[in-house]
Design a protein around this nucleic acid. Structure first.
Lengths: 195, 195
DNA sequence: AACTTACGGTACGGCCAGTACCGTAGTTGC
DNA sequence: GCAACTACGGTACTGGCCGTACCGTAAGTT
């Protein structure tokens, strides 16, 4: 064969991951088969199963390669920041990547050990940007301090994610984002502890 | 064989659905195989594929048999109603049925024609009870009239569903429900159009 | 150099979706 | 009451995929 040299260790691992990423991007998790990844990486399934216990683990690893954090918006006012962050999420979920994430969440099926791997991308870690964004708004007097709580801060993204779960793939139109921000998020966050 | 008579039409269809429901309840959607359903119904896959085009369609049909609407709570005040409705949803999603629903939503993978079948159980139709519940609260003066909007009305359930998607199977503790109601839902809904 | 480790090739077991074919029982129309 | 038709039951098969096993051989190790 052409390949006089035989790859090992990290070099091979990177090649496999790259192949998995490519398959994931092209065909989604459903189309990610161990045989195809092995073929694409120019190796065989042995090398895969030596590194990842099963297909799901490889899929998650490949997804994590694909998903990268976007910079935090700073428009100077809460509404603009929230909308922009929501648009980022919208782009992510309506891209092929969003479908992949849904497939993975599904394949994990509630298995905590796998879900934990995905939370960085989809769950708790996603609260951090919202909290800092809200923190700035509180400092500006745009929001009440008692809303600096993960459950409250992330309401907007959670609602948007719900759109995708319930309605399906296509990207949410911008009106939906505006509606979420204006009808729910801002009223919720602006409250002056109305008892 | 024992069965002298041969079932046809509706009788057979019911038997198949019953078998599918049983399999779904025992093993979830992942464990629902066409062979097992056929065997359990005492027939073969032909009869199945004559009625449903594929496994997912049968799974959804079986799920719809399983899920039935619970009566609408009426405790006399908004907080109690909302909490009770949330507890219903919590029970549903933390039961095996919830896992099944998640599996189905995943298997549908954004295919609109299938999602539409599930929305009755999980999506838009779920907005109706919340709207009537809120309507009563508005009449009592417990909520502002401008919150009679599906997006706003369903915020609580959507947040709860998110718990399941992100955290996994186990039932959400009651504190979480209380937190959702007290930290998010009531403040959101009680606003007196704070501009 | 000998030794160990990991890759490559290949083959296979097992499971399952979906399809095809055919004999036969039940139903319908005459 | 007979024929034609429809739908069920049995069975077999294709094709795809996950996961495992075995074995020869190249790469790194001492």
């Amino acid at each position: 064969m052409a390949g006089q040299t035989r790859r090992r260790g990290a070099a091979l691992e990177e090649a496999i991951l790259a192949a998995a990423v490519a398959e994931l991007a092209e065909s989604g998790y459903a189309g990610l088969t161990m045989d195809k990844v092995a073929a694409r990486a120019g190796t065989n399934k042995n090398a895969l199963y030596r590194r990842w216990p099963n297909r799901l683990a490889l899929g998650i690893a490949a997804y994590k390669q694909l998903a990268k954090a976007a910079p935090l918006p700073d428009t100077g006012e809460l509404r603009g920041d929230a909308l922009e962050l929501l648009r980022q999420a919208n782009r992510h979920w309506s891209s092929p990547l969003g479908g992949v994430l849904r497939e993975l969440l599904a394949a994990a099926g509630g298995a905590t050990e796998f879900l934990a791997q995905l939370q960085d991308q989809s769950g708790d870690a996603a609260a951090a940007p919202w909290l800092t964004l809200l923190g700035r708004a509180v400092a500006r007097g745009e929001a009440a301090p008692e809303v600096l709580h993960p459950r409250v801060a992330t309401v907007a993204v959670v609602l948007l994610r719900n759109e995708f779960v319930v309605r399906g793939v296509p990207s949410a139109p911008d009106d939906v984002l505006v509606e979420i921000v204006d009808e729910v998020y801002l009223p919720l966050v602006r409250r002056r502890s109305a008892s």
